[in-house]
């Protein structure tokens, strides 16, 4: 069925989705979580930036620091969602190792937690990715709790630093829980269990950032999965030679007005489309040169919404994305 070269990313269980702001990475991450859950599987969709983007997308109240069922694919299965909060994660963590009791909450109120993650920004990222790793590897009666985890990650501008946890904590303690935690996270992120997908749209700046981000990820030895071109439109009128007379005859045949204003107006809309296509063609070539599998998702004229998410999930499934 698929003619795309089979790549390691198909076997990943942690899918990290990044992209420039405005490219729809949260939407794509949610669609991917749906696709991977279909057929009776269970996936977890995680966000880490405190934006509550998942809650907005699914139109539900803000997510707590707790895994909640958020959607069910048409053929069974379950998508859960979690908004990871660095402060909560640190408290959870300290609790595990040091038994702070109620003092933990007090420290939070005093800003101590904020302070700790401020003087060591890498600590925050290690805590966030540490929680992600915990979800990926969690088992219940020796069965994995999640068949796949999809992370709505920070945007392309910050993704390298976010995922490069060992370097992030290099300045921190040489021994101790965070050190071993970061090594565990780094091992997972650099293994075939992980695939980092970069979402883009066919515009200058997002494509440029996509190419830059992939270069950075490769340099860091992080496994790049696919490039996901979002909001694509059918290439209507690609390369077509349009004439006033031809269009006028067509409109007449369709029983539509074909006065001069209508014909020139429609022609100018068509010409805009053609120059957009030409630019998109150039950007596609730039993306092709990156040499990664490219997935495409359609632009949804009526906005995303829940039904739109299912449409996108189907489109991913049609291009070979599947759970296992």
């Amino acid at each position: 069925m698929r003619d795309a070269p089979s790549s390691g990313w198909q076997d990943a269980r942690l899918h990290v989705v990044t992209g420039k702001g405005g490219t729809g990475k949260t939407t794509v991450a949610a669609a991917m979580a749906l696709t991977l859950a279909s057929g009776g599987r269970r996936t977890l969709l995680i966000e880490v930036e405190g934006r509550q983007g998942i809650a907005q997308l699914f139109d539900v109240p803000p997510l707590p620091y707790q895994e909640r069922k958020i959607a069910v694919p048409p053929d069974g299965g379950e998508v859960r969602a979690l908004a990871v909060d660095a402060e909560e994660a640190l408290l959870e963590y300290l609790e595990m190792f040091y038994r702070l009791g109620g003092a933990g909450r007090m420290l939070k109120r005093l800003g101590a937690i904020d302070f700790a993650t401020t003087i060591a920004p890498g600590l925050r990222d290690v805590l966030l990715t540490g929680k992600v790793k915990e979800a990926v590897t969690r088992t219940d009666k020796s069965h994995r709790v999640y068949d796949a985890v999809v992370l709505d990650a920070p945007p392309t501008g910050r993704i390298g630093r976010f995922l490069n946890v060992t370097a992030e904590v290099a300045g921190l303690a040489k021994v101790g829980p965070i050190k071993s935690q970061s090594e565990g996270v780094a091992a997972l992120l650099r293994s075939p269990m992980t695939a980092v997908h970069v979402v883009t749209v066919l515009e200058d700046m997002p494509v440029q950032e996509t190419i830059d981000a992939i270069g950075e990820l490769e340099e860091l030895d992080l496994p790049v999965g696919t490039v996901i071109v979002n909001m694509t439109r059918p290439p209507l009128l690609a390369g077509a030679k349009l004439t006033q007379a031809g269009l006028s005859r067509g409109l007449a045949a369709a029983g539509l007005p074909h006065d001069r204003a209508t014909v020139t107006g429609l022609l100018s809309e068509a010409r805009d489309q053609q120059s957009r296509l030409a630019q998109e063609g150039r950007l596609r070539e730039e993306l092709d040169e990156v040499g990664r599998p490219i997935l495409e998702l359609p632009f949804l004229a009526d906005g995303v919404g829940l039904s739109g998410l299912f449409t996108l999930a189907d489109a991913l499934a049609d291009q070979g994305v599947h759970g296992h």
Binding site: L236, L237, L242, G246, R249, G250, L266, E269, A270
Partner: peptide, 12 residues
């Protein structure tokens, strides 16, 4: 010609 006009209309 008709098919091009149809595409122009779909686009619109």
């Amino acid at each position: 010609g008709a098919s091009l006009a149809a595409e122009v209309l779909l686009l619109h």
